[in-house]
Amino acid sequence: MEVFEAIQTLLAVREYKDQAIPRESVTRILEAGRLTGSSRNRQDWAFIAVTERATLRRLGELASTGPYIAQAALAIAVVVPESPVGYIDGARAVQDMMLAAWEMGIGSNWVGNVNTPAIKELLNVPSERMILTIVPFGYPTRKLGKGIKQRKALAEVAHQERFGQPYTG
């Protein structure tokens, strides 16, 4: 899959087959995050790969916006410094991991609002760090259409030279 095709077709997946993700694929997803660029090359992130069924179930219970984590084969918690640069670098790594997974037929979705004391304790995250997101990964339960996205037209979001001037290409 070409990079642009992955971007064009990547969809949020919240329903997963009961199928393990091969270790090599998990490593490749983590490598995609590790290889992402970061501010001043600090690479100030940590990725916690969770595959134990009991921990995935507990994360699903604790994540108010992501109960479907419980059905995933893998969840990766992204831990960063609590700062704008930490948020940006972590988000960049997440996008690369999601695209790498998608290329392998593995779906995912960003789960927010997970920097809670209970989740930090469960994953042994130091108090001075924050959990930016938990991303569940798994094989989609249904075939997803390629490129079926509801997005604004380019003319609505792209500007030429200055805000408010239509992009002309």
Rank of each mutant, 00 (worst) to 15 (best):
S83E: 01
I48M: 11
G66C: 09
T55L: 06
L59I: 11
L74Q: 05
P67R: 05
I88M: 04
V80Q: 01
G107S: 12
R57S: 06
V85M: 00
A46Q: 14
A46N: 11
V78S: 02
R57T: 11
N41F: 14
A54F: 10
E52Y: 10
M97H: 10
R57C: 04
A73K: 06
A93E: 11
A73P: 10
F47P: 13
G107A: 09
E61H: 05
G107F: 06
R57G: 03
Q43H: 14
G107T: 11
E61S: 05
D96M: 14
D44I: 08
A54E: 15
E103M: 03
D89P: 01
D89R: 00
G66Y: 07
S64F: 10
R58E: 15
A75K: 03
I76C: 04
N109G: 03
S64M: 13
T55A: 13
I88T: 04
E61F: 04
R58I: 10
W102G: 06
T51S: 14
G86T: 01
A77L: 04
S83I: 00
V79K: 03
Y87F: 03
R53L: 07
Q95M: 15
S108L: 09
V78Y: 02
E61A: 06
G107E: 07
E82D: 04
L99P: 12
L74K: 02
V80L: 00
V50M: 10
M97Q: 10
A77E: 05
T51K: 15
R58H: 12
R42P: 05
R57P: 02
V85R: 01
V78F: 04
P81K: 05
M104K: 11
A91P: 03
A101T: 13
D96F: 12
N109Q: 11
G86P: 01
A54Q: 15
R40V: 14
A101F: 06
E61P: 02
P67T: 06
T51Q: 15
V94E: 10
R92E: 07
G107Y: 08
W45L: 12
